[in-house]
Design a protein around this nucleic acid. Structure first.
Lengths: 232, 232, 232, 232
DNA sequence: GATGAATGAGATTTCATTCAT
DNA sequence: AATGAATGAAATCTCATTCAT
């Protein structure tokens, strides 16, 4: 009974929501394959098996549709990272989670959406640009927080601007993804994430924390030696 | 008389070549400002003060023109790096030269051309994609050579694939450039290059090369100490 | 119980009639604001807070709806004039009533409906045009009657076609209304009506009715004078 | 020779100008037949036997094209009236010229353009409206000047606002034209102009200028008579 | 070789109308 | 009776490319 009622009332609203979801799903596909300009509403409609007009029943314009696609995609990534971040664990473990999650989510959709953001974010004039900046900021916030806290704790180097450290982490990830897609090779996400952390971790450490200690010891030994020799 | 002769002999070839250069120069400007799709042949012709038809006298299509623009741009960067690379100096010095030159040449034209490559390189179907791969390879060749030689010499770590090291260098550079353009801030190229090297160098070093040596010393000193104490 | 019965009996007819009235009322608003083409069924439905489909339950097409709107509006004006015309009073008083009523009714709804008729009445092809002619005729009938009777009584000039006199009355009124709407100024209906009558009345009088009599008298006095002088 | 050169150089520019003239001529036809909204660029292109794109080579948008059509049409009327006005002659003769010219020029194109202005002038939002007001003003300027000068000379009544007098002249003209087009009857322009002047002239005269003089005379004669009779 | 007018294929977007629920 | 999602025809406008001069 409940079921029947539910099922009966559903269509009116739920059908519409399903449509919106469908359109967004396919649009994400097409936009990420072809980029904004080469994507046509005709193509989207055809893949959905609906008429072009229907798309415009739910979205005012192609631009709005695209903005929504990007927003949703960001939202997913942001949610995945914010929710999953193992805050109790070590900085290095958290960094590894961030990189791993990032690689995983990007590779689901290919780098198409990434390139979309990269190229359309620059559309001067009346562009999608404004939509991106806040998203980009929210998206990198967990990473920035992590770095800031680690720096306060003296765990990572303080001699360079945080934004540079951020670039040193995000940049290689994007480049690896790019390589993967252009080269068309599959990526072992697990391994690549571990590699990236192994590679980048030394770059983040305070230069010569341990080394400095050892050097001091080395020096003191030297002094002691000389004294022994002299005091002979 | 001289003039007339000169004018008569030259034009057939030299005038045409000048035209081609002009078209390429302006096209580079426009493509990098607007991206491939938003660039119109009309815009290019207008900025040149010539008719649209003329462009098609020299280039078969917009696509071909764009491919040529990108190729020329790559050629310049490749030449600058190949010619300028200070091969006699230390690996670190060569890396700094590479990063510095890269940043400098990219920032001359803005990141427009970079975004152009990024977004148009993916054009599935009848794309520019095929043009890019070899260029990209030639472009990164000097860096790969440098890394390979340094690895053989034991200067840099051997526990990770070279391609990952490459990504760890190119990725942050691109990210920094991106930040610069999106943020609209000017970049101190000199300083940024130094910072990037300072940041990335530790990541490239064999893990614990120096540290390992010190630790071995520490250990030996310990052994010696105990022996002295015992042999007392 | 009463309620239930009432509600049950009424709806079939009365509810439907209320719907029709509502749709017509709002449609009049929208059509007169926007004109036929710029009016959308969506806009009408939204202002009514009903669904688009409902409109088509009661009207076969947008065109039919518009025709009905115009017809109703004419009916109101015609009724107001036919019922209110002070037939016992002087021709001039009746003319003033006509002008006053006309201005008043037009200005209630703005000149939107007027412009609607003007522009849509001409729609060649599958137009509303055919609907208008009889309405226009019924609408001007009271004025034509008034003029015809006055002419028979010798009150107004007989040297020009009646249709021209009608134009000389309707034309200025419309022009004044137009001015008012374009200029966006409020109109003092009372005063404007009086002014129009003052202006137009002399145009309707038989040329020189009074003047002719006076001139005849003037001539006779002259003759008499000369006779007196001579007969001295 | 001259001819040949002239003919040879002509196309480049003259061909374009001819095109523009052709497009304007046909557009005037279509816009005046169908109104702004119902006119399609397809229809215009078809009647011209050219492709739709060509229209947009010369005019940025349908709206601009329409604005130009209206402007040209106004310009013609304004020029005809400004140039032909017989300024030396009597006020009445000048008025007749104005009315006659107006009727003639309007009837060449039908009232289509008139209705176009009427209906599109109201297009709220981003309309053609702004284009019209100055044209309308320039267009009525000669008439207003005429009326103002005549009023200063005491030739026409001063008890009503000039704008009302203007409406009393323009209004009937438009109404007559409307009648003619709706009714589909041909109009005897000469006769109609004369009739309109005969009809409207008395409305413009100072009320009772002549009549007042005669009445004064009549009164004085009466006084004189009584005095003679008494002084007998 | 240069021109620039003409083209036509195609893209986005609107909206009256239909119809299953 | 009411809904509102779906439609599809049509409209405006863009632009790379061609070709006669």
């Amino acid at each position: 009974m409940d079921d029947t009622l539910a099922r009966r009332r559903v269509p009116a609203r739920a059908k519409a929501e399903q449509r919106i979801r469908d359109i967004l799903r396919i649009s994400r596909e097409v936009f990420s394959e072809l980029g904004y300009e080469r994507t046509t509403t005709t193509e989207i409609a055809q893949r959905l098996g609906i008429s072009e007009g229907t798309i415009f029943t739910y979205f005012h314009s192609k631009r709005e549709l695209c903005a929504r696609v990007i927003q949703d995609w960001y939202d997913e990534i942001i949610a995945a990272i914010e929710n999953g971040m193992p805050r109790g664990q070590s900085t290095r473990a958290q960094l590894e989670f961030f990189i791993h999650t990032h690689l995983r989510l990007f590779l689901i959709q290919g780098t198409g959406l990434c390139a979309l953001v990269l190229s359309e974010g620059r559309a001067k004039g009346q562009g999608l640009g404004e939509v991106f900046l806040p998203l980009q900021r929210r998206y990198t916030a967990p990473l920035m927080d992590l770095l800031a806290r680690a720096r306060e704790a003296g765990e990572i180097r303080a001699d360079l601007p945080l934004s540079l450290l951020r670039s040193a982490i995000l940049g290689p990830m994007e480049h690896v993804l790019w390589d993967a897609v252009v080269g068309g090779r599959p990526v072992d996400i697990e391994k690549t994430a571990q590699h990236l952390v192994a590679l980048l971790w030394p770059a983040l450490l305070p230069p010569d924390l341990e080394v400095a200690a050892l050097k001091r010891f080395y020096g003191e030994v030297g002094v002691a030696l000389r004294r022994v020799e002299e005091g002979k």
